[in-house]
Every structure is written in C-alpha cells, then in structure tokens.
Design a protein around this nucleic acid. Structure first.
Lengths: 102, 102
DNA sequence: TAAACACATAAATAACTATTTATATTATAT
DNA sequence: ATATAATATAAATAGTTATTTATGTGTTTA
C-alpha cells in the first residue's frame, strides 16, 4: 500500500497563484455562470436572462473568467458564445460540491 | 465503461455556499497558514514567526479558518495550538496545485 | 446608410476585507 | 499580588471588487 505524502511543497509564488485561482471561484455570480456553461455553450444574453443578472454584470464577469482562461469565446454574427475552456472547471466544481455535501 | 454525468445539479443556495467556501481559500495569507498546518499542528506565535506575518493578522485569519471549520484549536497553557480539522483541506490544496502545474 | 441588436467598456458607487496599531484577556511564573 | 507571556479583540484605514447607469463598438437588416 502506497502512502500519500504527508507534506505538500509549495513556493511563496505558488501559494500566491493558488489564492488567485480560488478568487475566481469565490463569487456566486461567477459560479452560476460557470455552472450554466457546464451544460452547454451560451451567449451573453442567454446567461443574463437565465440568471437574471444585468448584461453589463455578465460581461464583466465573463471577461474575468476569460482572462483566467477558464472560458473561451467565439463570435457568431452579433452574438458571442462562451464555453468552458477545458474540463478543469467541472472537476473543481464537482469536488467542491462533494465537500459541501458532507 | 461508466460515463461521467455531463451536468452538475446545484441549487441557488449550494452555489452561494460554494462561493463562500472558495472565498476562504482565496487569500494567500490563509493559504500559507493552511499549508503550514499540513505538516503539523502549530501555535499562533510559530505561525507568525515562520510566515513573518503580524500576530494579530494571524489570529484574525485563524479565526476565519476556525469559523469555517477548516481548522480546530486547543489550549495548552498560554499557547493555543491550531491544526487542520480534517483531510479535506489537504486534498483541495493538492488539487489546486495540480491544476496550476499544468 | 440608418436603425436595431448584441455585447463591451467606463465611471461612479457601495460593500467588503485584510492589515496595522492599540488594548484587553487569559495563563503562568516570580 | 504583580509582572510577563501568548493570544484575542477593537477601531481605523486602505485597498479591492461587483454592480449600476450610461455610453461606445461591431454586426446585421431594412
């Protein structure tokens, strides 16, 4: 039976970056947006309507999520469609859900 | 081969609670404290010295961590010893580390 | 080309939060 | 009892951030 390491090595910078990563998830509006995007790609208006958040507020948060490379976007005519950048977001949210359910 | 569910069901309240949980990890001082506690139980002064953070700042953050049930404490004479409440913290930090390393 | 639509951006504001400085509490030692 | 040590708490401050309101940008349609 392999034992888990009981220490985790992290540099000062890594700990700082880690906090920055958690900050992105530390807002319920962003969580709602991310959860909505787990199901499917969505455009800005859809998100605003579905979550009853103002359009500028949604755009503001989408920008943050995009800068953090958690979502990507593509333009299609007048609309801009947003989707999760990869599977990490889903994994992290799933983990957090399991933690909260205990 | 079992397929993962491609949706995650979360109530409004769960998403709010999730954001609150991430907020606790969204501060580099708290991350540093938690990482220090992965190795071993520590008293306030030790933490302050090791991380070069003022004693009141450490106490303030420990209080938040305790209220969030991420750490527990016990008094031993004049000192108060803090430790991680369970294995969850370590798991979450390990996950975040792996995410950042990609 | 003008109007309408979808989205982004800017400025202002309000709310929250971490740190510092100072002081209070609790426990030990003299 | 008093002094000292370890930690907690309070008040003040400064920095950050999400939302609103207003406006700008890019795209389609009439």
């Amino acid at each position: 039976m392999e034992k888990k390491e009981d220490t985790i090595q992290l540099s000062e910078e890594q700990m700082y970056d880690m906090a920055e990563l958690f900050k992105i998830f530390a807002d319920s509006t962003r969580i709602k947006i991310l959860v909505a995007l787990i199901r499917s790609e969505r455009c800005v208006g859809e998100i605003a309507d579905a979550l009853t958040i103002s359009q500028p507020a949604v755009s503001y948060q989408l920008r943050i999520l995009k800068q953090s490379k958690l979502v990507r976007s593509r333009r299609e005519g007048k609309q801009i469609w947003y989707a999760l950048a990869d599977d990490h977001v889903k994994t992290i949210i799933q983990m957090a859900k399991e933690h909260l359910e205990e």
